[in-house]
Nucleic acid binder design. Structure first.
Lengths: 190, 190, 190, 190
DNA sequence: AATGAATGAGGTTTCATTCAT
DNA sequence: CATGAATGAAACCTCATTCAT
């Protein structure tokens, strides 16, 4: 995933940017080609179809997200600290990569999403779920279907990031902590 | 809003259904016309363009949601009871009207959404915000920008409903209560 | 022709005005209806089709032109004076009724024109031709097919009027006389 | 202008022919495509829109006319001879290229024309005007706004050609000379 | 006589995709 | 590998016309 042909990467990045700005509708292949400085036909060397391109873009975004989050993880933390760090670093990733956030949200709310393999579509939640199950083994968290809990947590991250990106609120250190605390209090045993 | 010409309503409902199933892309005007049993041109009697149709559909969904929620409200409840009732009844509305849920989520994550007036786009959150401000006057809720809190609450409702509709979890009375409790614990002063 | 039903006249006049501003293309029946303050269906009480409306409009314009020109004719003039008067008064009619001028020119250069009866299409030239034949009987005019001469004269009138209406030149008394003289010198025996 | 891509030229020529036969109305892009033996979409490779196509067609006609007229010019002629030659060769060009004549006349009487740049729209008259100004320097022509005189001359050429093409008169050598003489007598000092 | 909602054929244009170079 | 002219199905939309009221 790190050694993408230069042109392939240019195509992915251009598409990501254009979809952020114009949505799926407003992103014809001809425009992707122009923005990526390649010929229209070249795109079809790397992707079978527009659908394929978009599906791969979703993988590409998940990969970028994963890579970013891993950088922040450390071992010497207790469970709560670890939760705060994860929540905040994910949220900051979306804020620093708005085109990823907008693309993912459009994608998961489109007819593309149900066509992903489960393994693929649930990967981000799964990582959170493993974390939850670790918490459960220590009896820290409240009783709840871990899958549902993971979904709620993931949504809280994305929602906060989008609110910031849409300019509806401004998130600073203070607010990140408030939000992480808020979500923490919603999942822990009181 | 209650006396929509019969054909106009048929067009709105058909579009809603089709977008749920096929997304914006997969919903050409010709298909809307066929599904609504009107001629293609008739749509343009009621809506200036496809864009207009979709924008009006958003208003229409907000209206339907509002009307549904109001049915459940009662006066003789304390603040927490009222919160639970509201959270659960909204969530159930989305579950009982999946086409509304799917449409709204597609819409707010599309380039259409930023083109709505603020007044229009923030109406659902505003209603929640007023509720929050009432809570604040009683000193019940934790310190936090009410706008942000409203956004987080609204998102939790939609997220839970979608998880259910996508078949990822199954929400029953038990789970509704758990979820409402979870969100309640995240906003109240501990 | 003088007792046109009020609505019929409103339709004709609206069409004339709209075609001047927007051309045939830019003049849909719905717009004619709105401008004339009648319902779309009403137009079809008075005219079989849009084509019929346009054909009748041509007659209507010829009638208006004829009526205007006749007002100016007097008996006690020699041939040349009469020519000048006719040339100038026709030219002024077009300038004072630009919508007629623009419509006629569009009409005669459209596929409608060849579908007119000869009698109809040549009426304006015929009147000029009778005048020419009178001149010929007095041996005043140069040898030339009277039909061709009539066409050339008629065209000179319209051309001058359009140049004025398009703002390319400004015609005042002086210029009218120059022009009439110019055309007169082109048809008389030198 | 001489090395137009083969397909582009086919599109222009087909459009020209079709507009002659059916007018602007009766010339849908689909028919242009079929007649030019290209796909509908191909037209939009070369022209932004139907409007653009028609505007470019006007330039193309002016270019063809210009090229044709230049072939006939010679140096060793006095002013009057030169005038006759120019008048007649232009008139014959229109007669030999009726689709150009019909297109130009439709175009200049349509809402397209006012949208041309002045430079563009007055080019044919300008060339005549320069000729007139040369005549004025020799004191040969009568006193008159050269612009107006140019317009009248240009119109006489087109009018004669159209009368012939419409079958209203038949122009042969004899008549060309008569007409050129007639116009010459209308502009020269008597 | 008059209305205007409704029709649907057909117009212009877009765009994912192909293929000869 | 890469190009981009060419394709043509299908999208959005218009508008002359009809007909129940």
């Amino acid at each position: 995933m790190e050694n993408l042909a230069e042109k392939k990467k240019a195509i992915l990045e251009s598409t990501l940017q254009l979809i952020k700005e114009n949505g799926f509708h407003g992103t014809p292949m001809s425009l992707v080609a122009k923005t990526a400085n390649v010929a229209a036909g070249t795109i079809y060397h790397y992707f079978d179809s527009k659908d394929t391109l978009i599906m791969e873009l979703f993988s590409y975004c998940q990969y970028r997200m994963q890579a970013a989050v891993e950088q922040h993880l450390r071992q010497d933390m207790d469970f709560q600290e670890s939760f705060f760090l994860r929540w905040i670093s994910r949220c900051q990733f979306y804020i620093q990569n708005p085109e990823v956030a907008f693309f993912i949200e459009q994608f998961v709310n489109s007819p593309f999403y149900p066509r992903c393999s489960q393994a693929q579509s649930e990967r981000p939640q799964n990582e959170i779920m493993q974390f939850i199950e670790a918490g459960n083994r220590h009896g820290i968290l409240r009783e709840m279907d871990p899958k549902l809990m993971a979904i709620m947590i993931h949504s809280s991250i994305m929602t906060a990031a989008k609110a910031h990106l849409d300019g509806k609120v401004q998130l600073r250190n203070e607010e990140f902590k408030q939000l992480a605390q808020m979500v923490w209090d919603s999942i822990r045993k009181l």
